[in-house]
Amino acid sequence: MANSALDRTDRLRRPAGIRSLQLGDTKVSYVPDGDVRLRPRALFPDTTDEVWAAHPELLDVSGHLVASIGALLVEHGDRALLIDAGFGPQRLPAAPDGPRGVIHGGALLESLAQLGRGSETVEAIAFTHLHPDHLGWAWHPAPGGDRPAFAHADYLVSAPEWAQRDLLKEQGMTAEVTALAPLVRPVVDGQEIFPGVHVRISAGHTAGHAEYVITSGGQRLIAFGDSLHSPIQVDHPEWSSAFDHDPVGAADHRRRLVVELKEPDTIGFGGHFADAVFGQVRQNDSGPAWRPLDARPTGDDQ
């Protein structure tokens, strides 16, 4: 049943559990923290009701897109890097308008423990960008303490993203910026930040959005952050999300990214892609499409 079309459809309607892939000497694992429900027409303003009527497999019973929230754990030997930091131990009700429905986090530290990792074993967090659903555990105090669980680690942020941090303060994120500042180490395009992991600046979603390219064992994984929010954008890269800072620039980058994801031995990681976070782009009769990989599930996630 795990490989059936029905199971693949169900995976697009539920948040991801822990899933792992082995790339040569490097292991990558999705680390769940929570999820957010998104209003599809508000998220993708260029779509229509007809579009979503034709894609019921992407919507839950309430008509929302299900977007996972979590992090990517990269392990090489006894070393560990985390890409993004979830939403943190909080829950918000649905916004009265706009794309966002109910959003919650809180599971990341427990998920790490299931993977055999304590937060103290993570040497750095590499952020794709500084939106709240990607930096939660980097600034929220850990349960029972007054410091974040990763306060010992380096916080790697693309130099252009960090240079425009005043924009975050204007958006009401002064507390987050203040908490991050002592730990931030800016990184630049092409920099190797961990064995086989390189930074790639891909502005569009935010002014300094970063992707991370992980190469090992003759394979390449592109952790593309919020360059894409949903598998539907693989076939329609022209559809920018309401959260994109530069919709035109984001669409231009997505077109190039989709072409790149079609290349041999290339895997994509879409952290918001419901329970299909690892996948490849393959051509079908209607165009390129996201094909989830059967990454090894852990625990009860079958």
Rank of each mutant, 00 (worst) to 15 (best):
R282S: 10
R100Q: 15
A126H: 07
G270R: 03
P141S: 10
P45F: 10
G217D: 00
G24K: 00
V234H: 03
G279N: 02
L73H: 07
L72W: 11
D10T: 05
H129V: 00
D78A: 14
F194P: 07
G34Q: 12
S240D: 04
A124C: 11
V66Q: 10
E123Y: 09
Q283H: 12
P40N: 11
F224Q: 08
V248I: 15
A124V: 12
V177H: 12
R117G: 04
F150K: 04
L156Y: 12
H55P: 00
L135D: 12
V61L: 13
E263R: 15
G34W: 04
P141W: 10
V187T: 11
I125P: 07
A223P: 02
G299F: 01
F278H: 06
K27F: 01
L228G: 05
Q302P: 13
Y155F: 15
Y30D: 00
G287Y: 04
D46H: 14
K262F: 00
G24P: 06
G106I: 09
W137H: 15
F127E: 05
G217R: 03
S111C: 04
V157L: 05
A71H: 11
A42D: 15
S68C: 01
I267F: 06
T121I: 03
F194H: 10
D300A: 15
H55A: 12
A210P: 08
E123W: 03
G106L: 11
V281K: 05
V177G: 04
Q90E: 13
P195S: 03
D46I: 05
T26H: 00
D25R: 09
A95V: 01
L183I: 02
A126V: 01
L65D: 05
G86Q: 02
D7R: 14
G17I: 02
D301M: 11
R8C: 02
L82S: 02
E192W: 04
R19H: 14
A163I: 03
D300F: 08
R79S: 15
A181W: 06
E170V: 09
V281Y: 06
R296S: 09
H229A: 12
H134V: 05
V102C: 08
V28I: 15
I103K: 14
F278I: 06
E260W: 04
A295C: 07
L183K: 13
R185G: 00
S230T: 15
Y212N: 04
V259C: 04
R165S: 11
Q22K: 13
Q22M: 09
G118C: 12
R11N: 08
Y212R: 08
L12I: 02
A179P: 02
D49A: 15
L12S: 13
E57V: 05
R19Y: 03
H64G: 06
F269W: 05
V188G: 11
D244T: 07
Q233I: 01
Q233K: 06
D244I: 11
I193T: 09
A5W: 08
E260Y: 07
R255S: 12
L23D: 05
L72H: 10
R291H: 15
A53W: 06
W52V: 02
P15G: 09
L21S: 11
W239I: 03
G172T: 09
E120C: 10
A71G: 10
A203Q: 14
T26R: 02
R14W: 07
L180C: 06
Q283F: 04
A149M: 01
A289M: 13
P143D: 09
R8Y: 05
A179S: 08
